[in-house]
């Protein structure tokens, strides 16, 4: 997903309310607010991301837990200007949140590394 525009670049499986596009737009809004908020990004104002001049916030994940499911958002860091994140929706009864988070992290890294 692209958090600047809310575009779903790709989707597989079942989406919340059977509607990937709406879920993408809503998740993107949440991601954007997080990314642009001073409270969540304050800690790293002179961090490596700024030195490299990249639009990479220090935020890595967003996790929303609901009674029936987990919503995981993982930001993708690229060496060119982009605003992409992965969004994973899981059934709470079957999912392992910690494992899912690590898998998503590895997936994100694999996406941009050659």
């Amino acid at each position: 997903m692209d958090w600047t525009t809310g575009l779903a670049l790709g989707a597989v499986g079942e989406g919340p309310n059977h509607d990937h596009e709406t879920a993408a737009a809503e998740a993107a809004e949440l991601a954007r607010l997080t990314f642009e908020s001073s409270a969540f990004t304050q800690a790293e104002q002179a961090g490596p991301a700024e030195r490299a001049g990249q639009a990479d916030g220090p935020v890595e994940d967003l996790i929303v837990t609901a009674r029936g499911g987990y919503h995981l958002i993982r930001f993708v860091e690229t060496a060119f200007d982009s605003s992409v994140f992965l969004y994973l929706w899981l059934d709470r009864a079957e999912a392992n949140l910690a494992v899912a988070r690590f898998r998503l992290r590895d997936l994100t890294a694999g996406l941009v590394l050659s």
Binding site: E36, S38, T41, Q42, Q45, A46, D81
Partner: peptide, 11 residues
């Protein structure tokens, strides 16, 4: 806008 906090974001 407040200093620093949003220096890395695109906007």
């Amino acid at each position: 806008r407040g200093r620093g906090a949003q220096a890395v974001c695109g906007r």
